Computed example of a mutant assay.
Amino acid sequence: MALILVTGASSGLGRDTAHALADDGHDVVVHVRNPSRLTGAGDTARWKGVITGDLAEVDQIRDVARQAGGFGRFDAVIHNAGVLHSPDVSTVNTVAPYLLTALMDKPARLVYLSSSMHRTGSTDLRRLADGTASYDDSKLWVTALALACASRWEGTTSHAVDPGWVPTRMGGAGAPDDLAAGHQTQVWLATGHDVTPATGGYWYHRQTQTPHPAAQDEAFQARLVQELERLTGVSLG
């Protein structure tokens, strides 16, 4: 049994991931922006805990990390929360995973949600701070962050996952990919299965793929981490 945090777990892939983990007997802590979104019967009772906070607000991201600290060291953290069309896209999709990673005790396993759309993202990191970032940009950056964290700390692995274009509220009813497969790779990576590569993989439906070249470029990773450190005032360590 593992202690696992899933961010953005009130709906969509985050909810499916959290439910699958709980069904398998794991202790699941869910993060939600608004606890009123937990409306299902027994929706709160089945969780080890519920953490609340708006990941579009830096002060609240810090508070989410503080709340998470009350549970001790997690076995896995799944950075699932994301937005598609929002002026907060870089904060929610990139800055929040960075800050939570930097501020929390390092888990055994880190899993970051990417997207196939990261392949058309920009490497212009000025967009992180000036409000012009696109969803594609933010997913390139979080993919690079995931791979930058790989093998960074002894005892911690890190992977990025493309869940596919699935019919969630974000993906839309007409999305062609398999909804069930959309969360299965995250569950698999978070629960300690032997995988190859052991860290630093970019995954789609439990198979590795080659991400955007910048995501694997150590120089770009270093520039990204440096810019995130400058913006937040928090070192990745």
Rank of each mutant, 00 (worst) to 15 (best):
D54P: 01
L110F: 14
S158G: 12
V89C: 13
W188P: 04
E57F: 09
N80P: 14
R126A: 14
G40A: 15
P167D: 08
P167Y: 10
G192L: 02
A173I: 06
A76E: 09
D27S: 15
E154D: 15
K139E: 02
Y135M: 08
T44W: 01
Q216H: 05
W141H: 09
V50A: 01
H159V: 02
A129C: 11
V50P: 02
A180Q: 13
L38C: 00
V92Q: 01
L147Q: 05
H183L: 06
G70C: 11
L21N: 10
F220W: 07
T232S: 15
A2S: 14
I51R: 04
E227Q: 11
D136T: 07
L103Y: 09
V111C: 00
T17R: 00
A150C: 03
R152I: 10
A102H: 08
M104T: 13
V234H: 10
V32A: 13
P197K: 01
K48N: 04
V29F: 07
R46S: 11
V83T: 05
T120H: 07
Y204P: 05
A215S: 01
Y98P: 02
M1G: 14
L5P: 07
R223S: 15
G72R: 06
T101Y: 13
V195L: 07
A215E: 01
H193E: 13
P97S: 11
G131A: 03
K106C: 03
T157A: 11
L189F: 10
S86H: 11
P97T: 14
L113Y: 03
K106V: 12
G25A: 01
H31D: 12
D136F: 03
H205D: 15
H79Y: 13
K106G: 04
E218M: 07
P35V: 12
L228W: 07
Q60K: 14
H19P: 00
P213A: 08
S115G: 10
G14C: 05
Q60H: 13
G82V: 02
L113W: 01
D162I: 12
G155W: 04
V92W: 02
A45L: 14
W47H: 08
N93W: 08
L189A: 09
L13S: 09
P97Y: 11
